[in-house]
Deep mutational scan, measured.
Amino acid sequence: KTYTFRVRIVDEETGEEKEIEVTAKSEEEAKKAAEELKKKYPNLKVELE
């Protein structure tokens, strides 16, 4: 079973919002993916929905 999570990304500089879908095998995995995004884009606000 896989879970699909919507991750909302807000670029703090431009105020631009993007939504991406993360497919993960567990909620834990999705959280890790969101953390990776935060590391990659430090000025983005990442929200897991």
Score class of each variant (00 low, 15 high):
42 P>F: 06
18 K>D: 05
5 F>Q: 00
18 K>F: 15
7 V>L: 11
20 I>L: 07
6 R>H: 06
22 V>T: 01
13 E>R: 12
33 A>R: 10
29 E>I: 03
43 N>F: 10
6 R>L: 13
37 L>W: 10
33 A>T: 09
35 E>G: 06
33 A>H: 10
21 E>L: 15
22 V>A: 01
3 Y>F: 10
12 E>V: 11
18 K>S: 10
28 E>Q: 09
10 V>P: 02
40 K>G: 04
25 K>A: 14
47 E>Q: 11
6 R>P: 00
49 E>I: 15
23 T>A: 06
13 E>K: 12
15 G>F: 02
46 V>S: 04
36 E>G: 06
24 A>L: 04
9 I>E: 00
23 T>W: 14
42 P>N: 05
21 E>V: 14
8 R>Y: 12
37 L>D: 00
21 E>K: 08
34 A>T: 11
49 E>M: 14
37 L>G: 01
17 E>N: 05
28 E>G: 08
27 E>P: 11
16 E>A: 07
35 E>S: 08
14 T>S: 07
9 I>R: 00
46 V>K: 03
13 E>V: 12
15 G>M: 04
26 S>W: 02
37 L>M: 07
14 T>A: 03
1 K>S: 07
15 G>P: 00
27 E>V: 13
29 E>W: 05
31 K>D: 04
45 K>N: 07
46 V>Q: 03
8 R>A: 02
22 V>W: 07
12 E>D: 08
37 L>T: 02
27 E>Y: 15
17 E>W: 15
44 L>I: 08
39 K>I: 09
21 E>I: 15
15 G>K: 03
28 E>N: 07
6 R>M: 13
5 F>E: 00
17 E>A: 10
39 K>Q: 09
16 E>D: 06
1 K>C: 15
26 S>F: 02
34 A>Y: 15
31 K>I: 13
3 Y>G: 02
6 R>E: 00
38 K>I: 12
38 K>W: 10
14 T>K: 03
7 V>P: 00
7 V>R: 00
13 E>G: 06
17 E>S: 13
49 E>Q: 14
47 E>C: 10
26 S>Y: 02
15 G>A: 02
33 A>I: 15
20 I>R: 01
46 V>Y: 08
8 R>K: 10
35 E>A: 11
7 V>S: 00
10 V>G: 02
15 G>R: 02
18 K>N: 08
10 V>H: 06
41 Y>D: 02
13 E>Q: 11
31 K>P: 01
30 A>I: 07
9 I>V: 09
41 Y>P: 02
4 T>N: 06
37 L>H: 02
9 I>S: 01
3 Y>V: 04
27 E>M: 14
27 E>S: 06
41 Y>T: 03
12 E>I: 13
40 K>S: 06
9 I>G: 01
34 A>D: 00
47 E>H: 11
32 K>D: 06
33 A>L: 14
40 K>L: 12
37 L>A: 02
15 G>Q: 03
38 K>G: 07
30 A>H: 01
33 A>Q: 10
43 N>P: 03
12 E>A: 10
32 K>L: 13
32 K>S: 08
12 E>L: 13
45 K>S: 06
8 R>G: 02
21 E>W: 15
17 E>V: 15
9 I>T: 03
36 E>R: 09
29 E>Q: 06
17 E>R: 06
18 K>G: 04
45 K>Y: 08
16 E>I: 09
16 E>Y: 08
47 E>V: 15
7 V>N: 00
7 V>Y: 11
11 D>Q: 02
